[in-house]
C-alpha cells in the first residue's frame, strides 16, 4: 500500500526538478528509483520518456554531458 515515503513519477515532479537545476537522464532516474516508486525499470523509462516529450525541456551540455532544464 502507498505510504507518504513513496515517490511518485509525475510530470509535476519532473518539472520541479528541471526548474531547480539542469539534470542528465541518469540524474532524473536517480530521483525516481524503482525501489522508491514501485514501478519496473521498463515502466520508469517509458513514463519518463513520455513526460520529457510533453515537457520538451531545453538541452545544454555541461562537462560534455547533455542536461535537460526548464525555465519558469
Amino acid at each position: 500500500t502507498p505510504s507518504s515515503s513513496d515517490v511518485l513519477l509525475t510530470e509535476d515532479a519532473v518539472r520541479r526538478y528541471l526548474i531547480r537545476k539542469p539534470m542528465t537522464t541518469k540524474d532524473l532516474l536517480k530521483k525516481f528509483q524503482t525501489k522508491r516508486t514501485g514501478l519496473s525499470s521498463e515502466q520508469t523509462v517509458n513514463v519518463l520518456a513520455q513526460i520529457l516529450k510533453r515537457l520538451n525541456p531545453e538541452r545544454k551540455n555541461i562537462n560534455d554531458k547533455m542536461h535537460f532544464y526548464l525555465t519558469e
Partner: peptide, 20 residues
C-alpha cells in the same frame, strides 16, 4: 546497480532521440 542505471539511461535517451 550502476549498470542497470546505465542501461535505463541509455534506453531513455534512445526513446528521446527519436523525438528530439
Amino acid at each position: 546497480s550502476n549498470s542497470e542505471a546505465d542501461e535505463m539511461a541509455a534506453a531513455l535517451e534512445a526513446e528521446l532521440n527519436d523525438f528530439m
